[in-house]
């Protein structure tokens, strides 16, 4: 075995999920006869639970295009797409030196994330909460 290139490209969770789906992975009971290995099904099951299940390549392209102005590293952008943070505190661990680099633009960035990337069904509730929070804070000011 010869490793020609250890990093021949980075894939988002969504792309891996699409790849597995194109191989025939799905939520049906006849998994044993599918042309997908059991280990691939485990990955599929994991990804199906994440926000990647609602994303499409077009949405991610649009998001990356929209967020070029924030000057994020590719890895950070990938991580934001994979995690889909729904509040500023969730962005903080993803972006290095978040305070100094993003500053006041973090709310704007967050809005971009929330609007462009579709939420996970379980995230819907918490989104409403953060929306309420925002209203409260604007009232205070």
């Amino acid at each position: 075995m010869k490793i020609l290139q250890s990093n021949a490209g980075v894939l988002t969770n969504c792309e891996v999920l699409e790849l597995l789906k194109s191989r025939g992975a799905g939520k049906y009971p006849t998994r044993v006869i599918a042309a997908v290995a059991p280990s691939e099904f485990k990955v599929y099951d994991y990804l199906e639970q994440t926000v990647a299940s609602k994303q499409t390549i077009e949405i991610i392209r649009k998001f990356v295009e929209d967020c070029k102005k924030y000057d994020l590293a590719n890895g950070e952008m990938l991580n934001v797409v994979n995690i889909r943070p729904s509040s500023a505190v969730e962005i903080d661990p993803i972006i290095q030196d978040c305070d100094s680099r993003m500053g006041d633009r973090i709310d704007e960035f967050l809005e971009n994330v929330v609007q462009v990337l579709p939420p996970h069904p379980s995230q819907l509730e918490s989104n409403e909460d953060t929306a309420e929070d925002k209203e409260e804070t604007t009232d205070d000011q």
Binding site: M1, K2, A8, V10
Partner: peptide, 10 residues
Amino acid sequence: MFVMSEIEHT
């Protein structure tokens, strides 16, 4: 999280 790697194998 997921990366592609190019490999040659006999």
